[in-house]
Design a protein around this nucleic acid. Structure first.
Lengths: 246, 246
DNA sequence: CGCCCGATTGAGAGGGTTCAAAGCGAGTGG
DNA sequence: CCACTCGCTTTGAACCCTCTCAATCGGGCG
């Protein structure tokens, strides 16, 4: 069974068996982190690239009023800041939301990877571009959609992203976040988020059991929240990349 | 006098004289575009990388209600989508806001550049990372700051970015945008934007003469809007680059 | 000179926030 | 095994920022 990392990169380029082995080998230095632990601090000049293997992490910035804004989720398979070594200082913090298994890759390992295989280089590029697309869509989501659609859109995205690495079924997944963390993501108060969750539940758009979320009608929730998964770039390239390999 | 492109990349890495010449030569295919002209359409698979030489352009997405959200400004020196060739489809549109002079670089030219010089490769990487940082800060700006600080923050950013390519003095620059375009950027109604402009003017935070903006007290406006230019990554490397030049 | 788009101003409505307080649930220590 | 506590969830009420709808003003251009 491939790690989520390899599994995700498959979407970016048609990896060869050797590519897969090289990648699996690269994520050998695995560490366990507790919830709410910062991996990379603002103004750091980090030594390693981090690849999330289990759990949820995030990018965030603290605001002057003490609250924080979460700017991106990092789920299994995602890697943080592939090329930050170029910047002398990083401009935000990366921290775990839940307990996480994280692989640490020194920059030398990344250079090895890109030196060895153009396909891997391409796949890593693709993951960067996919992250950028997500970042842009989040801007739209936060700035233009009302609270209910905002949450719905986030849930649609998570469903697709988690499906991509085998962590979601057709219509349900585990979302191990507190409502407060969700509120810090969606730029609203915990109080208001709670109301919105209730509303979506009452409208039958989602079902909650503990931290397990089920979306009875994915199409309906997608339409409701104006969700179009194209920005994740998880489908188009798969076929193209495979063709190119032949 | 170097083009804004080279001028900007200087911040990313200490370019050699040869690097500069190679870069200047790369932006030889220059075209003129009218205001409100789309350079790259959503779902396109673009053939060229675009480098803005004059004028303002932007990334945007259309929303179901017909309005649009501008997600990034592209000012002289900025280049769009360096590596989109990896994606089969682009997920947003790039269009001019004002009349623009734009250089078109076929992907082959980019590959030449990165093949020839590691410094140029690094500088291009840096520009991508700087764009990402900006994208993240915009997320914060749109989602967490009220309208007046939101506008103020944008103006602070533009001052610094335009200064970097020699298009702004210490405290003033030309902002050739309509209030409607600004509103499409800041995710508010034109009506409300207008009120906010007036408010900032009345509070003495900005001065307007036609499309020319002056910021009497940059420090004050920065504090007011919680602006910290670190996310642009325009300073750290500057000294390093200069030292290297000597 | 008239047209048209952009800038400007007014009044009322609504979504989201804040402040406050009461349930609920799981982990801890006695 | 139970009581306790802390954090998360849930609910209520009043307030405020921003939007919508509408109308007027102003300047550039044909």
């Amino acid at each position: 069974m491939p790690t989520p990392f390899v599994r995700k990169l498959e979407y970016g380029a048609g990896l060869s068996d050797q590519d897969r082995q090289v990648l699996e080998h690269a994520v050998r230095d695995v560490r366990q982190f507790k919830p709410r632990h910062d991996l990379i601090l603002e103004d750091d000049s980090p030594e390693n690239v981090h690849v999330i293997l289990e759990g949820f992490a995030c990018r965030y910035k603290r605001l002057p009023d003490g609250t924080r804004q979460i700017m991106a989720y990092l789920v299994p398979g995602d890697c943080c800041d592939l090329h930050v070594s170029i910047l002398s200082r990083i401009d935000h913090t990366i921290g775990t939301l839940t307990a996480c298994k994280v692989a640490l890759l020194p920059h030398a390992v990344i250079e090895d990877l890109t030196g060895q295989s153009r396909t891997i280089t391409r796949a890593l590029w693709w993951s960067t571009l996919s992250d950028q697309g997500t970042q842009r869509e989040w801007l739209i989501n936060m700035s233009r959609r009302p609270a209910d659609k905002r949450l719905a859109h986030l849930l649609c995205e998570l469903l697709v992203r988690l499906q991509a690495v085998g962590l979601a079924t057709d219509n349900s997944f585990v979302l191990p976040l507190t409502q407060r963390q969700l509120a810090e993501t969606l730029a609203m108060t915990g109080v208001h988020l709670n109301r919105i969750v209730r509303q979506l539940r009452e409208e039958g758009l989602i079902t909650l059991k503990g931290h397990s979320i089920t979306i009875p009608d994915v199409e309906r929730l997608s339409q409701f929240s104006d969700f179009n998964p194209n920005y994740l770039h998880l489908t188009q390239r798969r076929d193209a990349a495979r063709q190119k390999d032949r």
